[in-house]
C-alpha cells in the first residue's frame, strides 16, 4: 500500500503542472470568448443558439454586454418627459423630469442616469409594468399635499431632428408632439 502511494506521489510530482494549467486555461478562454463573441454577434442562427445555450452562465455572472450605442441609426428625436399628478381633490401638479441640457454642468453629471432611465428606457418602453412602477414612484415622491395622489400621467414630448438640408444653421424646434405613455390610478398601497 505504501509503495503504491509512493509511486503515485512520484507520478504526481512528475506532472508538468504548468502545462496542465495552460491546457485548462486555454479551454476556458476558448469557451468564454466564443460565447461572448456569439452573444455580441448573434445575427447568425447558429451563433444565437450557441450563446443562448449558455445564457445562464452569461447572465448569472453579469457577462451580458452590448455596445451598439448610436447604431445602426442614432436616435433622431429630441424628447422630454412630463409627469402630471392629479390629487383626490382635483388639484393638479406638473412635475418635470430632469432635462440634462437645462441643468448646470455639475448636475448633468449627477443626473445622467435619470436621463438614461427616462429617455432611453421609459420614453419608448413597451413594458407596461415598468411604466406602472415609474408612475407609483412619482406618486410616492409627490405625496406631500393635503389629499393623496389619485392619478399619475406620464407624457412624452418629442420632435424629430430636421434633416441636414433643413436643419443646418437653424435652431432646433420645440418638442411639440405629445404622447401619453400611461395614466395610472394610484392605489393606497402604492403610497406606503
Amino acid at each position: 500500500m505504501t509503495t503504491k502511494l509512493n509511486r503515485l506521489a512520484v507520478h504526481f510530482n512528475q506532472i508538468d503542472w504548468d502545462r496542465v494549467r495552460r491546457l485548462f486555461l486555454s479551454f476556458y478562454l476558448i469557451f468564454h470568448f466564443s460565447i461572448i463573441y456569439c452573444w455580441m454577434f448573434s445575427s447568425h442562427p447558429w451563433a444565437y443558439s450557441y450563446a443562448d445555450y449558455f445564457r445562464k452562465y452569461i447572465v448569472l455572472l453579469g457577462l451580458d454586454q452590448d455596445y451598439t450605442v448610436f447604431a445602426p441609426t442614432p436616435r433622431n428625436q429630441n424628447i422630454h418627459i412630463l409627469m402630471i399628478v392629479t390629487y383626490k381633490d382635483g388639484t393638479m401638479r406638473t412635475v418635470a423630469y430632469p432635462r440634462i441640457d437645462r441643468l448646470p454642468q455639475l448636475d448633468r453629471l449627477w443626473s445622467e442616469r435619470w436621463r438614461k432611465f427616462g429617455h432611453d428606457n421609459m420614453a419608448y418602453s413597451t413594458e407596461p409594468a415598468y411604466l406602472r412602477d415609474f408612475a407609483r414612484y412619482v406618486a410616492r415622491q409627490n405625496n406631500d399635499y393635503v389629499t393623496p395622489p389619485a392619478f399619475v400621467t406620464l407624457s412624452r414630448y418629442s420632435v424629430p431632428v430636421p434633416p441636414p438640408e433643413e436643419g443646418l444653421g437653424h435652431p432646433l424646434p420645440p418638442h411639440f408632439h405629445q404622447y401619453t405613455l400611461l395614466t395610472y390610478e394610484v392605489l393606497p398601497e402604492d403610497l406606503l
Partner: peptide, 30 residues
C-alpha cells in the same frame, strides 16, 4: 470586442454611410 461590435453595428446603418450620423447625434439636446 467592444470596438468590433460598435463598428459592426454602425455599418448596417445607412445614416453612417451617408455621413450624417454625427449631424444627428450632435443635435440630441440631452
Amino acid at each position: 470586442l467592444l470596438y468590433m461590435q460598435a463598428f459592426w453595428s454602425k455599418i448596417w446603418g445607412p445614416i453612417w454611410w451617408s455621413g450624417t450620423a454625427v449631424y444627428y447625434t450632435a443635435r440630441i439636446e440631452e
